[in-house]
Structures are given as C-alpha cells and as structure tokens.
Simulated assay, not measured.
Amino acid sequence: MQVGDSLAVNGICLTVTHLTATDATADMMHETLRRSSLMARPIGSLVNLERAMPANGRFGGHIVSGHIDGTGVIMSIRPDDNAVWFRIRPKPELLRYVVTKGSITIDGISLTVASVTNDYFDVSIIPHTMAQTNLVAKRIGDLVNLETDCIGKYIEKMLEKRGSDYV
C-alpha cells in the first residue's frame, strides 16, 4: 500500500493520505459521513479493510465499487447450524436495488442476497466469513454500510434516459 492508493474501510472507498507501518490515514468528506455508518461507530470498533483490486485481478464473483449507497439496520441475527442469518432493513430508496440471488455488500463484505421483502433482506453467513470480518462483533440495532448491485442502478439510469429521449 502507498499514499494515494484506495482502501475500503467498511466498504467505503477512501484514499490513503498518510501511511506508517501500523496505521493508514484518509480524509473524509461530509458526503461520506452522511451516507455511512462511520459516525455511529465508537472509536476502536472492528472494521473491514480491503485494498482495491487491480484491473488485471481476479473477480471473486460480485462486482462492487466500494462506493456505498447508504446504510441499513440489523434487525435480527439468527444461528442456523453452521451458518448465521442476518436480516437487514435498508433505507427504502435502496431496497429497490436488492434482489434475491443478487449481490449486496454489508460493511464492504460482498454477499449474496437470500431473500427480499418490501421492508428488509436476508443474507446467510458462512463460518469463514464470520471469523474473518467484523460481522462477528455486530449486534441487533447496529448500523451497517450497504452497497447495492451496481448493474441494476445502471440499467435503471439507461432506461430513464431512453424514456426521456423517446417521449
């Protein structure tokens, strides 16, 4: 990692402005703070860190940008044998982009949506993901950062533009 590189912190793409052997610093705009859960997290909270993928890197299954769309609240956490179910209530304007078997990031963790209703969505977390991310420390009521499936957003925008061109 070098100064100027991108670093996702709980799914929020930030630019590294200062770097030491043990710390990285980044600037944040008011827009970032308004759209994210960072202000709700106490100092010392566990966060997920991920470097940006190089253009020639391997995709792991989901296309994510590190540009969160907003937040959601954890409604329930339910063990299910070796898995753990999380139910998340996103802001209403985000739910339209959440589809069953589509991708979603929760605090930067790329996941597959298991089910969706008019109010919430569910994801099922495997033991490896629980052990390697900050989900292990999450509680009911916690605010999380969400990035919805980017393909749906692009399709919607193109259809809106196409509709205005032909009206």
Rank of each mutant, 00 (worst) to 15 (best):
I74E: 02
S164P: 00
E156I: 09
A137C: 08
E50V: 00
V16A: 06
R51T: 04
R96T: 11
L49V: 02
V64K: 03
T22F: 06
A21Q: 14
A114F: 11
S103D: 02
H62N: 03
L111Y: 01
A131M: 13
E31W: 08
V47Q: 00
R34T: 14
E50R: 01
A8M: 00
V73F: 04
P79W: 10
M75S: 07
M75I: 09
T22R: 12
M130R: 14
T129A: 02
Y154Q: 03
S124A: 15
G11E: 01
T71R: 08
D142Y: 05
K161Y: 10
S76D: 15
L46E: 06
G163A: 10
D149Y: 02
Y97S: 05
I151K: 11
V136E: 11
Y166H: 10
V9Q: 00
M158N: 07
N82L: 14
M29Y: 07
T117Q: 01
R35E: 02
V144A: 06
V144N: 06
A55E: 06
A26T: 08
N134R: 12
S37Q: 11
K101Q: 12
I68R: 05
M29E: 08
Y97W: 12
D81M: 12
D149L: 01
T129R: 05
E50H: 00
G11K: 08
T105G: 07
L14V: 04
N134K: 11
D69M: 03
Y120C: 08
T15I: 02
I126N: 11
R89T: 03
G44V: 07
G152V: 05
S6M: 13
S36A: 12
L95Y: 04
E160M: 13
F121S: 07
D142W: 05
V73M: 09
V64Y: 00
Q132I: 14
D119E: 15
M130W: 15
D122V: 13
I140F: 06
T25N: 05
F121E: 04
K153F: 02
Q2M: 07
S45M: 05
G11V: 02
P42S: 15
S6G: 08
R78Y: 00
M53H: 01
M1G: 13
